[in-house]
Nucleic acid binder design. Structure first.
Lengths: 82, 82
DNA sequence: CATCATTTGTCCGTATGTATC
DNA sequence: TGATACATACGGACAAATGAT
């Protein structure tokens, strides 16, 4: 997966989509740490700020949890519907 | 191509004509991003707002598509045939 | 405890693009 | 046509927390 800079959807939204899919598919299992800002920056070639924004979206959705000084982890509690 | 400020046709209309021709000729292919306001401003020496107005005309014609905060893109759907 | 490396969070400045008045 | 406000993206700098040494 790559970020399409010329796409209609904003880069941070695209990254959020990609990571959301990785979590949903189990590619990044529950309790696992999300790749660091630096790692994502290298993988997708977008700025840290934009990455942070994408991660912020997922945190807002309750998919990720912050561990101060350690990283972001996939939350055990899924946003159950209903 | 240049904009004739003393012409009967308004500057934004002239610019719209020019860009419409570039799209029709394939000079700016489908899916491609339109040159930025700054680029067009430098090329035709008219204000951003006038440029925006010209772009707006093309959007109204269904030639362009908006990407919020990112740019304008040449639409894949042709307005005439179909 | 001190130091270094890693990682996230926050803020600032700059550039670009759209929308509104 | 011009001026302004808002959204998005990039880059840099600094602070706070953690882990290893």
């Amino acid at each position: 997966m790559t970020i399409d800079r010329d796409g209609l959807r904003a880069p941070y939204q695209q990254l959020a989509d990609i990571l959301r899919e990785r979590i949903a598919s189990g590619d990044i299992p529950v309790g696992r740490r999300i790749p660091s800002h630096h790692e994502l920056e290298a993988e997708f070639d977008i700025s840290r700020n934009t990455i942070k924004k994408a991660l912020d979206v997922l945190k807002g959705e309750g998919l990720l949890e912050t561990a101060p000084g350690r990283g972001l982890f996939v939350k055990a509690t899924p946003p159950a519907e209903g």
